[in-house]
């Protein structure tokens, strides 16, 4: 496996708080990498830097052999990196179907001023994607009428509609009811594996990490404290004390 995303020496501080303090991380093509760590450890900051929302003060990020450090989000998306958000970022006045179609349009060409957004080809592609996510029954509902779990899935479905090679997900299961969590993640993993998407996801649920991640990176105060297979990393007493203990009591 080769590195699809490679971060070297990333540093970023907000005032005196070091959100990234020398991050070195390679994400291998095809893997599912979980990022765990206490709140404020810099997990979201890493996603924000990798997707162009924040520019690191030092260090480089390389994607598929090309440096993307500090490039704008639009350019990074076009290169094949998509993201979903901790708080779902849906177009609230549009239906779920329209949200997905807008994502497809963004990928396929938005500057077609007279053909409708819900043209047959995009509608069909959107319906197929929504079906895979189990969202077809809510396709015609406005995004602001959905419950949190459904919004979360729709948010990820929008990112998948961009057909990325790498998907960065910020807490994909937060807000999802505990009883639905495993089913949601199973659906998600199945869809992403089928599409051959490499995934990085920030997660607080260790059961999810243990079951679905190929590797896990432990974030602590802007640094990677541990990296490896879940069984090995999660068994580390320091990780159990400093991260899992906190996560379980969070």
């Amino acid at each position: 496996m080769s590195a699809l995303l490679d971060a070297r020496g990333l540093r970023l501080a907000f005032g005196g708080v070091k959100a990234a303090d020398g991050i070195d991380l390679s994400v291998m093509a095809g893997e599912f990498l979980a990022i765990i760590g206490p709140n404020g450890a810099g997990k979201t900051t890493f996603i924000n830097m990798a997707t162009g929302y924040l520019r690191p003060q030092a260090g480089t990020i390389t994607y598929d052999g090309a440096e993307i450090t500090g490039r704008p989000p639009r350019e990074i998306v076009r290169r094949g990196i998509a993201r979903s958000f901790q708080l779902p970022q849906l177009f609230s006045e549009h239906t779920v179907e329209q949200n997905i179609a807008l994502a497809i349009a963004s990928r396929a060409g938005i500057f077609s001023p007279l053909a409708p957004l819900l043209r047959p080809a995009w509608r069909e592609e959107g319906a197929e994607l929504l079906e895979r996510f189990g969202l077809l029954p809510v396709a015609r509902q406005r995004a602001d009428a959905l419950n949190e779990g459904t919004r979360k899935l729709a948010d990820i479905a929008m990112a998948v509609a961009l057909k990325p090679r790498l998907l960065l997900m910020d807490e994909p299961t937060s807000g999802v009811a505990a009883s639905e969590k495993m089913a949601v993640v199973e659906t998600l993993v199945r869809v992403l594996r089928q599409a051959g998407v490499t995934a990085v996801f920030v997660e607080h649920d260790m059961d999810v990490v243990e079951r679905f991640a190929d590797r896990v990176a432990v974030w602590s105060q802007g640094r990677i404290a541990a990296l490896g297979p879940p069984a090995e990393v999660l068994a580390d007493p320091a990780v159990q004390r400093d991260v899992i203990g906190i996560a379980r009591h969070a």
């Binding site: 970022q89 849906l90 177009f91 609230s92 006045e93 549009h94 329209q98 179609a101 807008l102 349009a105 060409g109 938005i110 500057f111 077609s112 001023p113 007279l114 053909a115 409708p116 957004l117 819900l118």
Partner: peptide
């Protein structure tokens, strides 16, 4: 307004 460009105007308003 029904085209991707028109719908994207609504998207600017909300997100």
């Amino acid at each position: 307004l029904l085209s991707p460009m028109g719908e994207a105007l609504g998207a600017i308003k909300t997100r």
